[in-house]
Amino acid sequence: MSLVQYSAPSTLAEALQALAGGAANRPLAGGTDLLVQVKLGLRDPQHIVDLKRIPELTALTLDDNGLRLGAAVPGAIVTTNREIARIYPGFTEALGLIGSSQVQGRCSAGGNLCNASPAADCVPALIVNRATCHIAGLGGERTVAAEDFTTGPGTHCLEDGEILVSLELPRPAPRTADAYLRMIPRTEMDIAIVGAGVALTLDESGVCTDARVAIGAVAPTALLVPGAAAALIGTTLDEDSLRNAGYAASGAAVPITDKRGTADYRRKVVGVLVRRAAAIARSRIEQPT
């Protein structure tokens, strides 16, 4: 290990300065991916810059505009917030599915994005919630849609020295709900073989007026699937429509076979999960808790 420096700046400006030297400088949020990768020899940073003492990275605000979530806010802070769980149940579930209770004390939605795993649970849920990513760099700030953040397995749109500061989830329209499901062989502690996020808006008569469907672990990045959403919009979410959304998701998937599952399996099950997640989102609108 060539790690020779650790710093924990207390302002964003200091952090950007510390990270400016190139890829050997790595930002640290919860560390539940980075420290494992260092341990397994997959990454070899020289300088780790801990972002958890920077207010913007650890702030959480929920108001009429929606949720603004610092990129390093740990999962446990989000998932134990009942108001967030009520408004964004699918996103909350997705974040809560990452790792163990112990990992929840550290992992973050921002970190999940930046790790850029195709199987990241948060990402489909962020995408269906139309989340935007606020990025800061020495050259200024910018925003990117969640679906455009990740560019491939392990890669994302951040330039060297840039920091993902926060995520913003707009307040959902009335009669809107989301859901996220994943397939893992055990009940916990696994990486998703398949993930599916759905957000739906229904009118008063139960007709779907808006939908977003995103799928995970079936392509190099999480995919927004407009075709699956189109299969739902304008319907009453009858069984056929749900199935059609599933078929559209299976059709959009470009999975690989690896140690966690086969491409055939992923393609098939992603359709099942989209169908089931859509049914859950619908029931959340019809029977709000």
């Binding site: 560390g31 420290l35 494992v36 341990k39 740990p74 163990s100 112990q102 990992v103 004390g105 550290r106």
Partner: peptide
Amino acid sequence: TGDCGACSVLLDDALVCSCLVLAAE
């Protein structure tokens, strides 16, 4: 690697795997 939980501690009241926390933190 944060998978077994044998190293569980509380850090500022949050349950964590102490193998996934840098000592300097």
